[in-house]
Design a protein around this nucleic acid. Structure first.
Lengths: 213, 213
DNA sequence: GCCGATATCCCCCGGCCGGGGGAGTGGGCG
DNA sequence: CGCCCACTCCCCCGGCCGGGGGATATCGGC
């Protein structure tokens, strides 16, 4: 199946890491490491001249860092796919890396086979990340209506207005009902969400997917 | 390298699609289709008895649909990875699928090699989706720090705790300062965000990218 | 050395909020 | 028909909140 091997460029400021990656990837008949870069600027330059299919890009590098380098690499004509690699799990680079257009995000402590698989995956044009990163991305959009407290339509409506920052009086006006009624609804919402305040109600309601912000 | 082949269960209500997938996957020496399910209930049952490594799950199926089936499959002891497959690009299933814990999301019009690669990728425990889906996920995170009011570090910290639903007294305890101090910081935050109350502050702060929820 | 920004603390007061009760209407379902 | 639920309204009260003043200390920069 591998008519021509996938051409890979490795960019990392640690020579040891570069050697390790080269060993791992070159061991596969369908992968071929065509170059190594020690910083972001070099990575961009080599990507331009060597025209690899995939760039394995470290995030932390001296000078031009991995994210900036990724941006620049992706501006090349017929750009390679960029697989961003980092050491630590929760350093918040994931979102930034994906925003600038990386095809994947991988941890350095991934096994050799995972690394190989990842290169192949982005080579065919798919996107990939380690499971926790995906979960983090999804978590920020918690369409978690599952297991959420059951609010009546009116209660959801009131919660929505509470989340707009409206006072009970304003909500009463908006819904054309008495303030006392609103107070009752708010009280129900607080009880159901187990919130002490309207502020907590907004946060919990948001997390439960009951309100949009 | 493939000591034992990856065991795959195919779930799709179209017999033609099942046959196609079987042909594609069985052609690979390291992949082995161990069963086919025609609906969600069957998929769950076969996943339980056959104990595959990966389930290729169609979203639209009669009876128990793919998403529900995915949830159930993932509740099995030592569950397989689930690769959700669908026909259309923008049907909004992506987020739901990932929320219920799918490891990947793929389009049916993906080529044979992409499909094979995808199965291998999720088999080693990574997550994958087609590039546009990832872009959509990222796009929904505005990160609109641009033009946001400038809060001092302490003010951001206080706002963060306010967003947890804490009262001024609790925040004071948490930060080991007087309640009056917290009141001052909160007042500054309200002024800078032009919020009338802490509830509005949370919402505005969230929209401005100043707090995470 | 002065000034601005930041962070800390203090007082008064009006108001909205949230908890505790109670109570009447209508609609849906057994 | 009777029951339950959702929706509506009412009263009292304690507490936290937010606006209005002001005060002190530290740090960094011009």
């Amino acid at each position: 199946m591998p008519d021509t091997p996938v051409r890979v460029l490795v960019a990392d400021d640690e020579p040891l890491v570069r050697s390790g990656l080269r060993l791992i990837l070159d061991a596969e008949p369908d992968l071929e490491v065509v170059g190594e870069a020690g910083d972001g600027a070099q990575a961009v330059e080599l990507a331009r001249t060597l025209r690899p299919d995939v760039v394995c890009m470290d995030v932390r590098m001296p000078g031009v860092d991995g994210l900036r380098a990724t941006e620049l690499v992706l501006r090349l004509p017929e750009p390679p796919r960029v697989l961003v690699v980092t050491t630590f799990e929760h350093d918040g680079y994931v979102l930034d890396a994906l925003t600038v257009g990386a095809s994947g995000f991988l941890l350095k402590r991934a096994g050799a086979d995972e690394m190989v698989q990842a290169v192949r995956t982005v080579a065919v044009g798919q996107s990939l990340l380690y499971p926790q990163a995906l979960r983090d991305l999804v978590r920020t959009r918690p369409r978690a209506t599952a297991g959420a407290p059951v609010l009546t339509p009116r209660e959801r409506e009131v919660l929505g207005l509470v989340a707009q920052g409206m006072t009970n009086a304003e909500i009463a006006t908006a819904l054309v009902v008495g303030v006392e009624t609103v107070r009752t609804h708010v009280a129900s919402v607080l009880a159901k969400l187990q919130a002490r305040d309207r502020t907590q109600a907004v946060v919990l309601g948001y997390r439960a997917g009951l309100v949009e912000l």
